[in-house]
């Protein structure tokens, strides 16, 4: 039961690790890392579910009848691109936050904003 679906267990573990990092860490870069891990877990979920045991790549060939479903792979290519765009934008924001605030720690940023009020 557990061994047969081990990739789904990996998905859940990664998902929880990612969410935990986003919530628990105050460092903005670490939050971005957590977010990437969370997104990666979903990529693995999609790829796992399209796998068929014994199936090959979906290329038309004689004698091949069992092949993986290519659609989730294609979808996840798009999702990977979206993930890269998100990470790039987040990193750009972190750079500008560092430039204007001089720190990338959540608590210090909030302290500095309160200080100015």
């Amino acid at each position: 039961m557990i061994l047969g679906t081990y990739n789904y267990w990996v998905v859940i573990a990664l998902m929880m690790i990612g969410l935990f990092v986003v919530i628990a860490h105050g460092n903005l870069l670490k939050k971005v890392i957590g977010l990437s891990i969370l997104q990666t877990s979903v990529f693995i979920l999609y790829i796992s579910m399209s796998y068929i045991s014994g199936g090959t790549a979906p290329i038309l060939e004689h004698g091949v009848e069992l092949y993986s479903n290519p659609l989730p792979h294609v979808l996840i290519l798009t999702a990977i691109v979206v993930g890269i765009a998100t990470t790039a934008l987040a990193l750009a924001l972190v750079i500008r936050i560092k430039e204007t605030y001089g720190t990338i720690e959540e608590q210090e940023i909030q302290a500095r904003d309160l200080h100015e009020c």
């Binding site: 986003v22 939050k31 979903v42 924001l93």
Partner: peptide, 24 residues
């Protein structure tokens, strides 16, 4: 505005990832 945008990005991306899981 930078800090607000960053917070929105984190929350928004978590939301979008949840939607993606639902779709899958």
């Amino acid at each position: 505005a930078l800090w607000a945008s960053y917070q929105y990005l984190i929350m928004g991306t978590i939301g979008a990832t949840f939607i993606l899981i639902g779709i899958g």
